[in-house]
Nucleic acid binder design. Structure first.
Lengths: 132, 132
DNA sequence: GTCCGATATTAGACTTAGTATCACCTGGTG
DNA sequence: CACCAGGTGATACTAAGTCTAATATCGGAC
């Protein structure tokens, strides 16, 4: 797991035990956890980890481009280890967030909006997960 | 302004002075105010209005289909009097939210997503307002 | 009009997400 | 060794939102 350290260094982040523990969890996760969810999980392995450090660490990771924040849930920001462009589907029953690949949807017209210099966009879809 | 009362009644909402005051503000507004912003504004006309009533009233309006909530800002839900489908543009400098007409963008592929029963969707665009 | 149950309103306590403060603790440098 | 930068942790604080319990008001039955 020492490639985590490499990843941190490559992003200009000094590796510490706490940061490594947070990174191991948050970079591998397939859900979209909030800061407090990250704290709860990582604390099981590293019980001295403080809430402030988790918030500091996650915000640092965002600054350094390791994570992105997404505003998808009421009441909390979630963190997403996928920093490339993609869309999101939100299950209206469970609140679960699913990634939707960029190529799965096509959006046209964004460049033509007058008065708006669009830097990025994504589609937010809501509905129900079926099958699977 | 008594057509506000008609609008409330038509949506099955008992008209009270507080609800009328909130409705007058929030149904006419062009911005996307948070509950506390609504409180602050409406309180100027109706100083006895309590915070709890504003929250109750706005949530009631949402239940009854007069408003929609939108999760577009960190830390707060905003209320939108436009209940028909449209997209949103967020100015990354100011945080201001702009409506983008439904017809201005075309999204294809949403119906074809396997495993997802899409009920609604919208495009969230971020960038800078230019010109006016 | 009066009474009464149902519904609204209010102030304030409470909860939760997130930030700020500050003391302490490292690890590298002169 | 002394020092300084940066990281960590406990705790205080702020802000969004909900809950509660007491009071006020509405609307219908008489």
């Amino acid at each position: 797991m020492s490639d985590i350290i490499q990843v941190l260094r490559r992003h200009g982040i000094q590796a510490t035990p706490q940061r490594i523990a947070v990174a191991e969890y948050v970079l591998a996760v397939r859900t979209h956890p909030s800061a407090d969810e990250v704290w709860e999980q990582v604390r099981r392995r590293c019980p001295t980890l403080s809430r402030a450090t988790v918030y500091n660490t996650l915000n640092l990771f965002v600054d350094k481009g390791l994570l992105k924040t997404q505003v998808l849930k009421e009441g909390t920001v979630v963190f997403d280890p996928r920093v490339d462009a993609h869309h999101h589907f939100i299950d209206v029953d469970t609140g679960k967030i699913y990634d939707v690949p960029w190529q799965a949807l096509k959006v046209s017209g964004a460049k033509a909006l007058r008065g708006f210099d669009v830097r990025e966009y994504q589609v937010i879809l809501r509905g129900r997960r079926v099958g699977k």
